[in-house]
Amino acid sequence: MPERQVTVKAEVGLHARPAATFVQTAAKATLEVTVAKAGGQPVNAKSILGVLSLDVRQGDTVVISAEGEGAEELLDRLADIASAP
């Protein structure tokens, strides 16, 4: 399955505004898309509560996965959001 592995740079981690932007972007897509901490259980990337519960902090690595038409583009966008400083 196509995936992206990125390190979270934002000082607030994948919380607050970065988390909201990430989830809003994922929710607009019709594909199923998941996010996990490296080596951890994936959660639905369209679920703000799921993403927050991962407790991703600055410097953590996350794996974002999606499959289907447009998956590569979506993953690129999500990877950009997750790795933005």
Partner: peptide, 16 residues
């Protein structure tokens, strides 16, 4: 507004 929009996302959470 950002905080309230994030809360709206919670209310619409598919996992919930």
């Amino acid at each position: 507004q950002k905080v309230l929009e994030a809360q709206a996302l919670m209310a619409r959470d598919p996992g919930l």
